[in-house]
Computed example of a mutant assay.
Amino acid sequence: MEKIKVLHITQSVGGVETYLRQVIQNIDRSRYDLSIASCEPSLEKLCALHEVPYFHLNMSRGVNPFVDLQSIFKIRALIKKQQPQLVHLHSSKAGFVGRIGAKFAGCPSLFTPHGVSYLSFTGLKRMVFFMLELLGKRFTHKILAISQSEANRCVYEIGHKSENIHVIPNSMTIPSVPVLVPDKLGNLEGEIKIGTIGRLTAQKNPLQFVDIANGVIKGNEKVHFYFLGAGFHEDMGAEVKERVQYHGIENNFHLIGKGDSIIALNFLRQLDIFLLPSIFEGLPYALLEAMYEAVPCIVSKCDGNNDVIDNNDNGYACLVTDEFVAAITRLIKQPELAKSIGEAGKQYVINRHDIANNIKDLEKIYAEI
């Protein structure tokens, strides 16, 4: 049987990189021939590790008509040269220019937003990016959403036809035995450790994270807060440090630079509570990974988080800072409750987010398209 050639195109890393790693490691490589085009060095290393062809593409992060037009023609030329049967596009920028390039090349495409673009902005910027999504709709073949919330936005806000949208939730490898990894992080300070993983950008709402930390620390100085992922494609690092200084919690608040998957696992296994006050999400891998490690999770009520957290059952979903502080305080005071919440979260991930099951649905979608 001839292999189905799928070209993945992205500009982003983080959750997208984790997604691609899961696909590469679990898809039936005897039936599917994968390649990746991106501008990120980490993805080039990922491809080299798994013997997947990699193609370098320059794409601008913001709106840059000249560079974006160049990207469209480069993507079209790459598709014409490589002749994939399907192009799978990830994130807003690659999704926009890639859909147009694939359309011009006459190749069907599958677009995964990983969080629709306009949710990152307010005011005029939000309107501009929403209009770009409406424009992109004209060039869209099929959509693969990573959560039902993401699919709903595509249908009810952007106006895509529901029959053109598939939903497969972000998934992870569920090992048969606990994974043993070397300690690359060392011991974190504090009797009680609360943390998150992400970039210091508006999406992850780091200023509210600091405000929540302040509310908890003022009532219990044994608690330390950690943010893993600082210094990587961030634009709010200075603001976060200023807010920490304003509250006077420097001794109990820690920023840690971005690490690899082993450091992330070292980090999660030391946490007592995982905190994610994001403004929006697609469906965060960091949350799934924390839940799988049986860390009780407290999150914001936003897309992605709402798809995973059943409030008061396998975690807590909050809106305002006082709610977050109250939920954290409750779990600190009731360790048995924290343990049961963590175990419920782990079982949820095992039941619904096992890549061994969900990769079969992805293969089916690839074959159908």
Score class of each variant (00 low, 15 high):
residue 3 K to H: 02
residue 6 V to C: 11
residue 11 Q to C: 07
residue 14 G to S: 11
residue 18 T to M: 13
residue 20 L to D: 03
residue 27 I to F: 04
residue 28 D to M: 08
residue 33 D to V: 02
residue 37 A to W: 03
residue 43 L to H: 02
residue 46 L to G: 05
residue 47 C to T: 11
residue 48 A to D: 13
residue 51 E to R: 03
residue 53 P to R: 06
residue 60 S to G: 07
residue 62 G to F: 09
residue 63 V to Y: 05
residue 64 N to C: 03
residue 65 P to D: 09
residue 66 F to R: 07
residue 72 I to T: 09
residue 75 I to Y: 01
residue 77 A to F: 04
residue 78 L to H: 04
residue 83 Q to H: 10
residue 84 P to A: 05
residue 85 Q to D: 15
residue 88 H to E: 07
residue 90 H to N: 11
residue 92 S to P: 01
residue 96 F to P: 04
residue 97 V to G: 09
residue 97 V to L: 07
residue 100 I to W: 00
residue 102 A to W: 04
residue 108 P to Q: 03
residue 119 L to W: 01
residue 121 F to I: 02
residue 127 M to T: 13
residue 130 F to W: 05
residue 132 L to T: 05
residue 133 E to L: 09
residue 139 F to I: 06
residue 139 F to Q: 01
residue 141 H to G: 05
residue 148 Q to F: 00
residue 153 R to N: 00
residue 153 R to L: 14
residue 173 T to S: 12
residue 175 P to S: 03
residue 176 S to F: 10
residue 179 V to W: 01
residue 181 V to K: 13
residue 182 P to L: 05
residue 183 D to L: 10
residue 199 R to K: 04
residue 204 K to V: 15
residue 204 K to F: 10
residue 207 L to Q: 11
residue 210 V to Q: 15
residue 212 I to C: 10
residue 212 I to V: 15
residue 218 K to S: 14
residue 219 G to R: 15
residue 225 F to S: 13
residue 226 Y to N: 09
residue 226 Y to C: 13
residue 227 F to T: 12
residue 229 G to Y: 12
residue 230 A to S: 14
residue 234 E to G: 10
residue 236 M to T: 11
residue 237 G to V: 09
residue 238 A to W: 08
residue 238 A to L: 15
residue 244 V to I: 14
residue 245 Q to I: 08
residue 246 Y to H: 09
residue 253 F to H: 14
residue 255 L to N: 14
residue 260 D to C: 12
residue 271 L to G: 12
residue 274 F to M: 07
residue 275 L to Q: 08
residue 277 P to K: 09
residue 279 I to P: 09
residue 285 Y to L: 02
residue 286 A to H: 00
residue 288 L to F: 07
residue 289 E to G: 01
residue 292 Y to R: 01
residue 292 Y to A: 02
residue 300 S to T: 10
residue 301 K to M: 08
residue 303 D to T: 06
residue 305 N to W: 00
residue 305 N to G: 02
residue 308 V to M: 15
residue 312 N to W: 01
residue 314 N to E: 01
residue 314 N to R: 05
residue 315 G to T: 02
residue 317 A to L: 06
residue 319 L to S: 00
residue 321 T to K: 15
residue 330 R to G: 12
residue 330 R to P: 04
residue 332 I to R: 03
residue 332 I to T: 13
residue 332 I to Y: 02
residue 332 I to S: 05
residue 335 P to F: 08
residue 338 A to N: 05
residue 339 K to Q: 12
residue 343 E to D: 15
residue 343 E to L: 15
residue 347 Q to Y: 07
residue 352 R to H: 03
residue 353 H to N: 14
residue 356 A to G: 00
residue 357 N to Y: 06
residue 357 N to T: 13
residue 359 I to W: 11
residue 360 K to T: 14
residue 365 I to V: 15
residue 366 Y to M: 04
residue 369 I to K: 01
